[in-house]
């Protein structure tokens, strides 16, 4: 069963989980995701996988308790069992020795960016990592990235830690300094991935983004995760989750991601999830 072997709070509302899932751990390749249900009556939510320990039979997840389902997950602790974990899903990231690769991670997207960076490093690439967060408290995985990056830039929106500014600002500076890249991989909020793709477009650098839309089944059955890529409908769950960032229609994807905002807020209210979390104590 999917027991939580370890849970650690790594930033405000952000938790890192080690979950027992030997079959998934064995098969996981960078870029893939799982669909998870915290409780037997929960929603199915997609979460990217940060890494796996095949020997221990565990996978690592980084989750921000931001919606009803992720808050439900936050109610589970070390030793608890997650009702359902399905995976690994989606195509693995395309990994080969491209040369010099920039890996951009923002928010909890930093987790999947890390997985891809590790695999790219192992394939012999030079890794330049740029990770960004709102402020110092929300900066995650800095040490992990430091270990595998040839260069690492840490950005905060408010300048409370390391360099002030967005990840795109750093990327632009690198281009401005005359550097050239063979590939850019970005994972994070849609606005960030879109900004990265727009930035690299004039330079013609192949730019891969890892999309994380709303999903139900995660196995190609519902089409809820569909996006427009190169003017055609794709299913992110089975055709992705990585796509050519220069061809993704971020506008429609962003609207689709917002579609349930009001409904979900009502449900959170009904479920009194915030009260439960408060009682539980958010700190681990």
């Amino acid at each position: 069963m999917f027991e939580i072997i370890n849970k650690q709070k790594i930033a405000p509302d952000i938790y890192q989980y080690e979950v027992s899932a030997p079959l998934i751990a064995k098969k996981f390749q960078a870029g893939q995701f799982i669909v998870l249900r915290p409780f037997a009556d929960s929603e199915r939510i997609p979460l990217t996988i940060m890494g796996s320990d095949r020997k221990a039979g565990t996978i690592s997840l980084i989750v921000k308790a931001i919606g009803l389902s992720t808050k439900q997950l936050a109610l589970l602790h070390k030793g608890d069992v997650i009702a359902d974990v399905l995976g690994p899903l989606g195509h693995p990231s395309e990994i080969e020795n491209f040369g010099k690769v920039v890996v951009v991670g923002g928010g909890v997207g930093t987790a999947v960016a890390f997985a891809v960076a590790v695999a790219l490093k192992q394939a012999g690439n030079t890794i330049i990592s740029i990770i960004g967060a709102r402020n110092k408290d929300f900066t995650i995985l800095e040490d992990e990235f430091a270990d595998i990056s040839d260069e690492l830039y840490v950005m905060t929106d408010d300048g409370s830690y390391k360099k002030k500014g967005f990840v795109t600002q750093q990327l632009q500076e690198l281009y401005d300094s005359g550097m050239q890249f063979d590939r850019v991989v970005a994972a994070g909020p849609l606005v960030m991935m879109r900004a990265v793709a727009e930035l690299t477009r004039p330079y013609g650098t192949p730019t891969i983004v890892s999309l994380n839309p709303i999903m139900v089944d995660g196995i190609g059955m519902c089409g809820g995760c569909r996006a427009l890529v190169d003017g055609k409908i794709v299913f992110v769950c089975v055709d992705g989750p990585e796509f050519d960032g220069h061809k993704v229609d971020f506008e429609s994807l962003n609207r689709r991601n917002q579609a349930y905002r009001g409904i979900e807020h009502n449900k959170e209210h009904q479920c009194m999830i915030d009260e439960q979390l408060e009682e539980e104590g958010l700190d681990e």
Binding site: V216, G220, G224, R226, A227, I233, R256
Partner: peptide
């Protein structure tokens, strides 16, 4: 695997596949 119509606008919010 649900088929879509393949016409413009199918990505709009409010359109479900029957499966979804």
């Amino acid at each position: 695997l649900p088929r879509f119509l393949g016409i413009p606008g199918e990505e709009l919010v409010g359109i479900y596949s029957a499966n979804e």
